[in-house]
Simulated scan of single mutants.
Amino acid sequence: MWENNPVTRALGIQQPIFQGPFGSGHSSAELAAAVSNAGGLGAYGAHHLSGEQILALAADIRRRSERPFNLNLWVPRSAEWGRPMDESRETAYLQQLKPLFEQLDLSPPASAGNPLHDFNEQVEALLEARPAVFSFVFGIPERSILDRCAERGIVTLGAATCVAEARALEDAGVNMVVASGLEAGGHRPAFLEEPQPSSLLSTFALLPRVRDAVSIPVIAAGGIGDGRGVAAAFALGADAAQVGTAFLGCDESGASTLHRSLLRDPEGCDTVLTRAVSGRLARYIRNRLTESADQWPDPALSYPLQLSLTRPLAKASVDRGSADFATMAAGQIAGLSRHRRAAELMASLIADSTLHTNSPDPETTEE
């Protein structure tokens, strides 16, 4: 019933339902195409790819679907929040990690590194690829980049965790804003102030505030895993709903078999906001890595150094079929979805959201 709204008209999609763009290889061209083919907006988190890989990715998605899709990048920051980095801190932190590596029969790293690709190279490739949507987190690209997107007909979409960030995105000329609540899996994309677990807003507290503060389309994200969540998001003023964890649990996603099975577990899984994975605050499935970091006097180095240390631990853990040191993003709705295929999940989101929107008021229904 929301097929004709500002978002669907602007993007040329059938349903205002977005797939969350998962980073670190959890996205897949197959999933993005499946969501787009089902009428929504498929997405791929491409911040870990080089420019050449981004061009190959876009071509792969287009071989699978002729419909619009979204590519996501992380805006670089000049400095990270938190404690400054020095050699003594790095040495002490590596000593904390050493037993974890030894448990997996890995050689402990001698130092932390920077696994990132050049952002400007990524942007140039994205502009050449011309996806329907360029979404970004952790900041706002330079005005020249936004202007070049406009020239190419690429819709820009920024993420906000508070009203001030939403206003900053609109003032910069960004076309649409994602209101990202604390329930969401993965990183908290704050960029104006350091995110603190105690001060984060839930999706359904943040959403109406953002809706009242900006005039551009607003996409709700975080804690939306079925039709009830979609219907609630629209009731609070959203123009579209972004679903992450439920799509991550689908067979087409790039998540490991172990990761997907935990996300679909009817009993759910315990998630935690932690800096242990990347150095930035993010929501992951609680495991031995996050619990160990909770006990350390220094829980994580800054981003992206921390990421270079946890990636080999995660790979080795998953290769052994163990969740102990795996880095598995998950929102608080983990376990809510029962659908293994993206098309089935899309159909359920559409049908159930309409059902819950049109449900009769029990106080007015005749006996």
Results as ranks from 00 to 15, higher is better:
290 T>P: 06
324 D>V: 10
252 E>A: 10
286 R>N: 11
326 A>I: 03
294 D>G: 07
274 T>N: 14
313 L>I: 15
268 G>Q: 09
299 P>W: 09
281 L>T: 00
257 T>F: 00
262 L>Y: 01
261 S>E: 15
314 A>C: 15
330 A>Y: 04
253 S>P: 03
309 L>Y: 14
324 D>A: 15
277 V>R: 00
269 C>N: 12
283 R>M: 15
326 A>C: 13
306 Q>C: 02
258 L>Y: 04
275 R>I: 08
264 R>M: 09
326 A>W: 08
324 D>W: 08
304 P>I: 04
328 M>Q: 07
264 R>H: 11
311 R>T: 08
287 N>L: 09
252 E>W: 08
292 S>E: 04
300 A>V: 02
330 A>H: 03
284 Y>W: 11
266 P>R: 13
300 A>Q: 12
298 D>V: 05
272 V>L: 14
259 H>A: 01
273 L>D: 05
292 S>A: 13
303 Y>E: 06
252 E>H: 14
302 S>W: 02
256 S>A: 11
268 G>R: 10
318 V>W: 03
270 D>W: 13
301 L>R: 09
309 L>E: 01
309 L>T: 11
284 Y>G: 04
302 S>P: 11
252 E>N: 08
325 F>W: 12
279 G>S: 12
307 L>K: 09
267 E>W: 08
253 S>A: 14
276 A>Q: 03
291 E>Q: 12
266 P>Q: 05
284 Y>L: 11
281 L>P: 11
270 D>L: 14
273 L>T: 04
284 Y>F: 14
317 S>Q: 05
311 R>D: 07
323 A>L: 09
268 G>C: 07
282 A>L: 09
271 T>C: 03
259 H>S: 02
275 R>M: 10
286 R>Q: 13
320 R>V: 13
260 R>S: 01
261 S>M: 11
299 P>Y: 11
251 D>T: 02
314 A>K: 03
278 S>W: 01
260 R>M: 01
279 G>Q: 04
302 S>F: 02
311 R>N: 12
308 S>G: 11
277 V>G: 06
286 R>A: 11
314 A>M: 06
310 T>A: 13
283 R>G: 05
308 S>L: 12
324 D>R: 15
286 R>G: 07
274 T>V: 06
318 V>A: 08
311 R>W: 06
321 G>R: 15
320 R>C: 05
326 A>R: 01
269 C>W: 00
254 G>H: 15
